[in-house]
Amino acid sequence: MRHYEGISLGNSIAIEVQELTKRYGELIAVNGISFTVNRGEIFAFLGPNGAGKTTTVEILECLRRPTSGKAYVLGFDITKHQPEIKKRTGVLPQDFYTYERLTVKETIQYYAGMFDSRPDVDELIRLVDLEDKKNVLFRNLSGGLKQRLGIAVALVNDPELVFLDEPSSGLDPKARHGVWHLIDGLHKKGKTVFLTTHYMEEAEILADRVGIIHNGRIVALDSPERLISEHGKRNLLILKKTSPKAVPNIEKLGIKANYDKTTSDVTVHLNHAVAVSEILHTLSNTDIPFGELQLKRSSLEDVFLNLTGVSLGEEESGI
């Protein structure tokens, strides 16, 4: 592929990465990954802590140098045209932080000044829904509001491409949905968004395409729907508020079941739809009670589990 350095118009590819590797001494944080991000799409890197998401993103933001491999952002070589890239991209770093004693409005003005751009500051504040906080100091904002300010700051230069490193990490569900709504808004404005996350739900809901990254390698890359249909073979049946005695009854059918003591739920990984009727039939012949019956379709969580042998959640709690 040819790269028209400096002229990226008309090119449908926003990011191209070839055999990118980053070592920290002995540790290989990013291990020869290749992928492309199309213009106008939301691309998500999904993986647990330590997978190499931040390292990759920061190489693309020209903050870290790759050990080997090539990467082009908006047609510019990351090792040669860093000012061009910085001018045209917006960045929400992981754990965004800024001057404690500047207000929301002053912060946006400050970063706008750094880009020599003149955005409509009030419009940006409205976009991230901080109108009634615009004169509040950064230090007095809650986590979710800080993050929204960070997104506003990432937009001061009206970037073609926005990097969001764990945009909703550490936020409560309400704040998280606020951030998702914002990201969706960026998408609708035609911006290219590269986000990283360890929440499978975030990737599944927001992303057009998801790269699953584990131990510095991309183990799968596709749309969430196709990832699930290809790798998330198992659907899930949950029997709420039942007794452990359900387990041996179900396992008699040659299907594995798990009892969870804290919730007194039994979970069954289904291999084919027929199993549901068999299980219900078996249980109706016993006096084992159950409160409610839930059928869950497979999620990216299962895709990750299938591909790596570990669950996203397990790894996360280990950090």
Binding site: E61, L63, P83, K86, K87, T89, V91, P93, Q94, D95, F96, Y97, T98, Y99, Y111, M114, F115, D116, V153
Partner: peptide, 11 residues
């Protein structure tokens, strides 16, 4: 706290 980090992403 990452302010340098953020500044480094600007011109």
């Amino acid at each position: 706290n990452g302010i340098f980090h953020k500044l480094a992403t600007t011109p």
